[in-house]
Amino acid sequence: MADTAVAPATGHDAHDDHGAHHTSTGLSNNKLAMWMFLGSECLLFGGLISTYMLYRGRHSENLGPDQVWDIPFTSASSFVLLMSSLTMVLAVSSAHRKDDRNTKVWLMVTALLGALFVAGQVYEFTTFYREGLGFTTSLFSSSFYTLTGFHGVHVTVGIIMLTSLVGMIGKNRVPGDKAETVELFGLYWHFVDVVWILIFTLVYLIPA
């Protein structure tokens, strides 16, 4: 840990300056907090993934995982989510260039791609349900829907945050540093993407 205690003992000017946060590590509080939060989220998904891995083979006389998966479709939707990470990067870089217009544009595109992903998930769940895989059908189905559902909720919350951020940038109502705020959202978004890659590999690709 960088143990660099900056000494702002004399300067109150430093305090008033938004851009330069004087912290012991030089890392802004918000960013550090976001990293901590994401660390915590890792264990949340860790717990859910473990539950799923334990129960994936337990569906007794009901539908099993490989009987319902539509891998090509899920691959397409995974790709869309991955692309949204790319656009998020573009949004962050626009924000750092203080280009509000393109920040908004790329945030919106990210949100749209995310929404497409969620729509894909809704479609997928609907087909699974029609094929006979309800939430309470078996241990496998309960743990599958819980895991992917939690991820879906994370994406959805992310989208609402992104669109709101677009609105707030538009109305010029972002408290604090705009570029950093966008970057924080970006961190969250990338995390959600990475989790999906893990889920896609473990849940869909490895045969049960």
């Binding site: 205690a5 000494a7 702002p8 012991s24 590590t25 509080n29």
Partner: peptide, 10 residues
């Protein structure tokens, strides 16, 4: 981590 007084290393 971030808000220690100046000079206060870990």
């Amino acid at each position: 981590i971030n808000m220690r007084a100046p000079g206060m290393s870990l």
